[in-house]
Design a protein around this nucleic acid. Sequence first.
DNA 1: TTGCTAACCTATTCAAAAC
DNA 2: GTTTTGAATAGGTTAGCAA
Length: 357
Amino acid sequence: MDLNCTGGLLEKEARRRRIILNQSQKDTLRVWFEKNPNPDLATRGHLAKKLGISESQIMTWFQKHRKIRKQVEFECCSEESQEQGQDKPRVKEAGRSRTHFTKFQIDILIEAFEKNRFPGIVTREKLAQETGIPESRIHIWFQNRRARHPDPKQGTRATSHPPESSQCPAQKTTGQLAPSKDPTSSCSVILPLSPPHTPNGPLDLSRGRQKQLPETTVLQPSQVVQRRGDDQNPSLFIDHLSEVKSPGEKEGFHTQAPLQLPIQKRGHNPSENSGLSVPPLEDSTQVSAVNQHFRKPDQKDLAFLQHWDEWFQSMLAEWMPDKGYWAVKTDLHPWQAQLLQLLYVSEQTDQTPQQPV
DNA sequence: TTGCTAACCTATTCAAAAC
DNA sequence: GTTTTGAATAGGTTAGCAA
């Protein structure tokens, strides 16, 4: 079966996740719509949290209702309202807030874009987890990217609907990731993003873990690093950690963790759950706000962060349940190898990662 | 099957920040 | 001042779900 050509149900599920709003949610949205039909990002985020749906869904709902209202005004209302309608509320009173992506985040997005110009909701959520960027911002980023970087294979800008074949084959069937058959590609950027154990996290991170990669093997961290070229010296990572740049600096390597929580500020001992726990990085991780859309953590975020170690661990190694140990991936992205080296340097006493609780 | 509507798209524009 | 690019809009299509 040619996975590239299957346009079946599973793929559609991966592209869209339709959620029916209940009456209470609709009522709340209507109230807010009457107050302000053009809510800014912060307001949408507040509403999303309040209603338990995503910010992009809030955005979609407001878009639709602005459209409906405009149609109603056009059909039913007087010239007076049409004159008012000419004063489009496109420019908000407050200036637009602008997300500043880090080079790390941009690199991940670009690589994902090159693999698939039309990521579905599952892929976008995985990218959101991986980068710490809200899914709605990732959606916008892909829209802008498509508009400004026409697909050279098609020769022209995409003018109608996304080609179904543009879906990444690895994402077609289950929304999970499969090992790439392309020997030149790496699975190290789109990683097994589901932490081993997060049943009630803010995102559904409990979707099955990636299958063991064929190239997975047991290695010492030093071997991993040695396999890479000189340009991937682990010191680069350390250097980057201390390279704190101003929020507006475009290409700076910001080490901001998702949700702006410095790793050492989690509410538990990093060594409790993982032998690969992230060591304290002192001020190096306490960079100033880079992305103003990150919010302060709520309870769900904290629950998520409690599995942060495990998540990192799963990005670097693969748990072998039948063998009872973690196998370090051989095909690590340079930053992963550098992170691994850093962790092991700091955790010299514990060379064998433990299975998370 | 049909209607509703959430989710998605392109095209375009605005505007913040970098150059 | 110009360029780059994130954010937002309008207007359209697609697709999931309930009746």
